[in-house]
Design a protein around this nucleic acid. Structure first.
Length: 482
RNA sequence: GUCCCCAUCGUCUAGUCGGCCUAGGACACCGCCCUUUCAAGGCGAUAACACGGGUUCGAAUCCCGUUGGGGACGCCA
């Protein structure tokens, strides 16, 4: 039997290092056995899915060298590979489950469910989740209400048995108690499937043999087992990878770590080093070799060699490893790498128009434009003072920067002068400052200087990752200054 | 709160059916060497089997409990 694996990202934000990490293991498993590695876009959340995010995810994965054999852009025999284009398939399968008594329509409103949750929480109920109200409806009654056009979802009817035993390759048999497994929504009222349905249907239809995914999915494993059983399908092998962690051991998050692959690319990490490091998180080579290529990793990879402790994503070690790779490059190779990014004609072509009118000699360019080429900028006492508008406190400024980061910057997927300007101007209203107060603070934070090219163009060229990083660093500098 | 997962140096880990472990490697830190500087590189030092019970001639390795950490409990994935 051929080995087929997949990475199934949801295009709702920046390409995440966790996605890259899981993709790497899936890629290695498939390639090791001469199988296929697929890319499937899970864009069933109509509110949050975004084409810009999808593009960035493709770009990030390609940058890392994790090329897929089948996917939305390269096609394949099991397409379409974008779930939003497979609605009919899910609807059909949901109906099959209703017909076999394994699913039922649920007419409960969002309000009722919210209430239910609140009551359960207030009562400190040991059993959370859907109470199964609509499961008691007679098929005829349900049919009539559906035909009448009443809004509803389709829920999975979990078996009434006491408990359920499921398999994870690394953990063996796992036993779940029935009360924990409520009747999960399969088809939303907008007709789109939830993860659970789409995932199981697609994995089956696409011939996925091994599902390597993040540990956060472990608790929904019983639902997925039940789905396979209800359809009468053969199970793939499930293998849950430990979650990447922040230094405090919580699940890795952008509040505490740069999590966008784009950040690492811009910061000058080499894709080979990045991959090598990601592999080291939970896997070690048979001979304890620490530096290895994707090919070497692929050859040596065994699922059973995966460690289960949640690894802390240690930037220092990644940086060290990257240095090792960098030093191994020849001068020509390094020139090439630099010209691919910071010194690319494309990037210089954006920077120069902003600077040319403000310099008189070529060499002045390097001094004037230096902040376009470094990572974090230094906040000397002047810059630090400049960050704080008259009459404001450093604590207040740090708070405003932090809030702007989360509310205005993070959600921005399209990053250009116009979108940045809109976002920041909107935040002026939110924070209640005068426009020029916020603009100057942002200017100092993003560049370390009082004099720069026009703010929004500058931020646009710097890119989201760099802006994020510097704004956060500025907030941090303000908090720690005496 | 309920359920599930996890548990070796600060961090990533080796330890694969108990003895070869006075627990090995790597990052970070510290020291020394090299060196006009800074790196890099070399050498060395500090540093861990969470705790308590079993099983056994013998446990980091097996079992149970405790503690700790994490995740899940959405018409998000």
């Amino acid at each position: 039997m051929s080995i087929r694996t997949r990475i199934a990202p949801s295009p709702t934000g920046d390409p995440h290092v966790g996605t890259a990490y899981v993709a790497l293991f899936n890629y290695a498993l498939a390639k090791k056995h001469g199988g296929q590695f697929l890319l499937r876009v899970e864009d069933t959340d109509r509110q949050r899915s975004n084409p810009a995010s999808e593009r960035m995810i493709f770009e990030a994965l390609r940058w890392l060298g994790l090329q897929w054999d089948e996917g939305p852009d390269v096609g394949g025999p099991c397409g379409p590979y974008r779930q939003s284009e497979r609605s009919e398939i899910y609807r059909h399968h949901a109906e099959m489950l209703i017909a076999s008594g394994n699913a039922y329509p649920c007419f409960c409103t969002a309000e009722r469910l919210t209430h239910l949750r609140e009551e359960q929480k207030a009562a400190k109920a040991t059993v959370m989740g859907y109470d199964g109200l609509c499961r008691t409806l007679s098929p005829a009654e349900a049919r009539r209400r559906r035909d009448a056009g009443e809004a509803h979802v389709i829920r999975l009817a979990m078996p009434e048995t006491e408990s359920m035993t499921v398999q994870d390759l690394l953990r063996g048999e796992l036993r779940f108690e029935r009360p924990q497994m409520d009747d999960q929504v399969l088809l939303k009222s907008d007709g789109f499937p939830t993860y659970h349905l789409a995932n199981v249907v697609d994995d089956h239809l696409m011939g996925i043999s091994h599902v390597l995914r993040a540990e956060e999915w472990l608790s929904s494993l019983p639902k997925h087992f039940q789905l396979y059983r209800a359809f009468g399908w053969e199970l793939p092998v499930f293998c849950h990878l430990p979650l990447l962690r922040n230094a405090d051991r919580s699940k890795i998050s952008k509040r505490k770590n740069p999590v966008s692959v784009m950040h690492y690319r811009r910061a000058g990490f080499l894709p080979e080093a990045m991959l090598n490091f990601l592999a080291l998180m939970s896997f070690s080579m048979p001979n304890e070799q620490e530096e290895f290529s994707l090919e070497e990793f692929t050859r040596a990879f065994e699922m059973t060699g995966i460690s289960l402790g949640g690894p802390v994503f240690d930037l220092e070690k990644l940086t060290w490893l990257n240095g090792r790779y960098l030093r191994r490059l020849t001068t020509e190779q390094m020139i090439d790498r630099l010209q691919q990014h910071l010194l690319s004609p494309a990037y210089l072509g954006e920077v120069i128009p902003l600077c040319r009118e403000r310099i008189d000699t070529l060499e002045a360019f390097f001094d004037y434009a230096s902040f376009f080429f470094v990572g974090e900028v230094k906040y000397d006492p002047t810059a630090l003072a400049g960050l704080i508008p008259k009459g404001r406190t450093s604590v207040e400024v740090a708070g405003v920067l932090q809030a702007m980061l989360e509310q205005a910057i993070d959600p921005l997927l399209e990053w250009n002068a116009a979108t940045v300007e809109t976002a920041i101007k909107e935040h002026v209203a939110v924070c209640g400052w005068a426009p020029k107060e916020l603009f100057m603070t942002v200017r100092f934070a993003a560049t370390g200087r009082a004099a720069t090219p026009p703010l929004f163009e500058t931020l646009a060229v710097l890119g989201k990752e760099v802006c994020r990083r510097r704004l956060r660093a500025a907030a941090e500098a303000l908090r720690t200054q005496k």
